[in-house]
Design a protein around this nucleic acid. Structure first.
Lengths: 128, 128
DNA sequence: CTTGACCTTCCAGTGACTAGAACCCTTATG
DNA sequence: CATAAGGGTTCTAGTCACTGGAAGGTCAAG
């Protein structure tokens, strides 16, 4: 399987797949012509990566998860620890964003948004 | 006022302030010794920037907002447009994160997290 | 044999800083 | 007066996870 087919199959851009090889997340074989020749296991790994990345795991988390995935003697506690830590970060980010959203929504609400210069948004940012 | 005092006054790291000068967001004068000499207006701008950044505005948004702030003939509609656009992005990000959170929370919940290898998190990521 | 769609590598850029090195200036103290 | 501490300065390079683009090799169809 060439990289284009893998890209189509996984939804990952070819560039990203090459990058994942570069940082040793996948190691596809090479054909005689120098093209990457992806096996089913590579495809599987890449799908795993795509899903993990979609859940917001960092590349290094993905690397660890992938290693655990391939380790039959793993302890699910390790997986859960990584996931829980990530979950906390997500929750924290959401909290941050909701604060921003609340503040900003209020400001946008109170701004007329017409052709006059008077603006509570700038007033607030300026600290007046 | 030297950069250290400004950093203390605005809460911005000195490095960040230098960076802001680098990208022309502020233009502090220079003393005879080569030190940046911040005026009140610089301080005010930096506080503005710190607040805008805390609300998640991009540097380029900040640049635009700062220009509008200093423009007496501005139309508040322009400000509101920038803020509304940003607000939408925040809302979208929150939605994304909440999806991740929901999925991940469920997975973490169903994972025993003990010394056994069986793990629904990896199962899900693996697509099984 | 040519065309066009693939594939390859490598270099540089993104956003918003941040770390660190190497050096200069100022002030206080022995 | 020497020096040490604690400012300040510039510069390069690293972060994260790609992404764009250039220059060139390969392959299947007509």
């Amino acid at each position: 399987m060439n990289i284009g087919d893998v890209a189509a199959a996984t939804g990952l851009p070819a560039k990203t797949i090459r990058y994942y090889e570069d940082i040793d997340l996948v190691r596809p074989a090479r054909g005689a012509n120098g093209y990457r020749a992806f096996a089913e296991t590579d495809l599987h790994k890449l799908r795993f990566l795509a899903r993990a990345r979609a859940l917001g795991f960092s590349i290094e988390d993905c690397r660890a998860l992938l290693a655990l995935y391939g380790d039959d003697g793993r302890e699910s506690g390790e997986v859960k620890a990584i996931a829980s830590k990530h979950l906390k970060k997500i929750a924290a980010k959401i909290a941050d964003l909701r604060n921003m959203e609340a503040t900003l929504a209020h400001l946008v609400d109170t701004c007329a948004g017409d052709d006059r210069p008077d603006c509570p948004i700038l007033k607030d940012l300026g600290g007046d």
